[in-house]
Amino acid sequence: MALMPDLLAQFLQMALVLALAPLLTGFVRKLKGRLLRRRGPPVLQPYRDLLRLLRKEVVLAENASWLFRAAPYLIFATTWVAAALVPTFATGLLYSWSADLIAIIALLGSARFLLALAGMDVGTSFGGIGSSREVMIASLAEPAMLLIAFTVALVAGSTQLSTVAAFMGSPEVGLRVSLGMAAIALVMVAIAENARIPVDNPATHLELTMVHEAMVLEYSGRHLAMIEFASHLKLLLYVSLIACLFVPWGLAPHGAGPAAFAAGAAAWIGKLAAGGTLLAVFETAIAKMRVFRVPEFLGAALMLGLLATLLMFVSRSL
């Protein structure tokens, strides 16, 4: 049975992303607190929050429909599947061949589509404002993300993340202008997609400035837990994606032994910690921007992505 170890590695990946996602969020929160000279919440606080939410009863708005109740599970599932497709500690996992980078972007798009709909289900003004702004942000972030995908796909000759990561780790990549642009654009998109400062503030509940929090305002109990979990997963996914595209070292190749897997996992956790630290420092150093400045921010990411793709068309070595 050659399938068994592959299957096991895939399940390990799915379990690992699930187990580590809240930790990353907790780590970023703690670090942000320390940087602001607060003690910050404990690193394990997101786990406690999730457990507490799971134990609570759900308070549903009176006219919430089945979509409102089904959406959290679907959002969680789609984000989890997308996270399972990104190489974290190893490439060439069994399931990674069933979808490529474009499909991962589209899966996250499905999750966002459902979340935006869920925000409008109860029929409150805050839900609408959140959904409306979310789709505006997505309408710029998603094309930027696709153009980044084009760039790395043209460099590596594949949209399959495992192949791309393997290529990026090989010496023939070299320094390229287009990859630099794509990296900057990807970081900008990741900030916007994860509702971080300066695009959105995950800590605020000030009604008129929030985007993501406005959409989930009516959620409570286990439903809220699922949505929170999905956003933890999404942050982990983006950090892993940036890591596997631009710092692909330490990834265990397909069929490697447990020792390589352990080394890969250690490298991955190191990368997550580095990514989380950078995010916390960046968020502490910058102020949130007005909603209508966001299109300029994301427009810059879109233009960088377009320029990077264009460079790849002009010359394969740029």
């Binding site: 009863e57 308070v59 009176e62 109860v122 805050f126 305002l217 009516e218």
Partner: peptide, 10 residues
């Protein structure tokens, strides 16, 4: 557990 209540809407 599940309970129906008026919408929260801040």
């Amino acid at each position: 557990a599940r309970r129906r209540a008026p919408a929260w809407d801040c």
